[in-house]
Amino acid sequence: MAEPRPKLERAPRLMLRETVYESVKQLLMDTDLQPGTRLSIDGLSRELQVSATPVREALFRCEAEGLVVRRPNAGYLVAPLLDRQGLLDLYDLRLLLEPVAAARAATHATAGEVRAMEDAVGLMMPAVEGDDYQAYREFAGQDTALHTTIAGASGNPLIAETLTRLRTHTHTYRLYFHHGIAEVTVAEHQAIVAAIREHDPEVAEKAMRAHLETSRTRLLSAYE
C-alpha cells in the first residue's frame, strides 16, 4: 500500500507568520512611532490583511526583541528607546565580554568557524544599499552572525548566551543608522577576523576592543 502523501499546510503558515513578523518589525523600525504608542492588533490585522493570530505572534516576538512592551489593560506599546546611560551600560558589558571572546576565539576557533566569520564580513558591504530597515536588516544579520560566531568560537557558551540576550543590533538601529558607517565597520571587523585567523589572541582582543569603543562613540552621537 502506498504511503499517504504528506500534507503541505505548515510551510505556507510559517511563511505567513514570518512575513507578518518582518512587516510589523519594519513598521516599528522605520516609522516615527513614539515610545508608548499603543499598537492595535485589530488595526495591524486590517492593514496587513491577515487574521489577528500572526499579528499577535509577531508582537510576541517583537516583545522578546525589546521592540514592544506589554502592559496590563493596555496591550502592546512601542518600547522606550535606550537612553544614554543605558547605551553606556550596554557597551560596558560588551567590553567586558567580547574582547575576551575574540582572544579565546583566536586560540580555539576551528577552520570552519573562521570561514564563517570571513563569509559574514564579505557579505556585509553589498548588503547595505539604503538607509532603511530593509537594507540594514541584511547588514545587521551578517554583523550578528559574525559576533555570534566569535562568541561561540570562544568555547564559553555563557558568553554567547549573554550577548544574545543583549539584543545589541535592535538597540543600535533604533538609535542611529545611516548609509556610510558600513565601510568603516567592515574594516574594523576585517581586523578582528584577521587576528583570529592568524591565531593572535592579543591582537584579536585589541581589535575587538577598538571596534566596540568606536562603535560606542558613533552611537553616542544619537544623543547630541
Rank of each mutant, 00 (worst) to 15 (best):
P99I: 05
R104T: 00
Y133C: 02
L97V: 07
A74F: 08
R56I: 01
L123Q: 14
G66E: 04
H108W: 07
H108N: 15
A52I: 07
A127D: 00
G36N: 05
A111K: 12
V55T: 02
A101N: 13
A103H: 03
G86P: 07
E98Y: 09
L67A: 12
Q26I: 01
L59V: 00
V121P: 06
A102R: 03
L77Q: 12
G130C: 07
F139P: 01
A140Q: 14
E47A: 15
K25G: 01
P126T: 01
E65G: 01
T37Q: 09
S40Q: 05
D131R: 14
R84C: 03
G122K: 02
A103C: 02
E113F: 03
Q34H: 09
N73D: 11
A101D: 10
F60Y: 05
P35D: 04
G75T: 05
L87H: 10
L44W: 03
V24P: 02
D30I: 07
P80M: 11
T31D: 01
G75V: 07
L59E: 06
A106Y: 08
V114R: 11
Q49D: 13
A105T: 08
E138A: 14
A111I: 03
V78D: 08
R137M: 13
L146Y: 12
S23D: 09
P72L: 05
V68N: 07
P126I: 00
G112N: 12
D132E: 14
T110L: 04
D143C: 01
S51F: 01
A79L: 12
E65L: 15
A106V: 09
P126M: 06
A120C: 11
S40G: 10
I41V: 14
S40W: 03
Y133L: 11
Y76D: 07
L87W: 03
R38T: 13
L81R: 07
T144G: 12
S23L: 13
R104H: 10
L97F: 05
I41Q: 13
V24F: 15
D131Q: 12
L87R: 11
L48R: 09
T31S: 15
L59M: 05
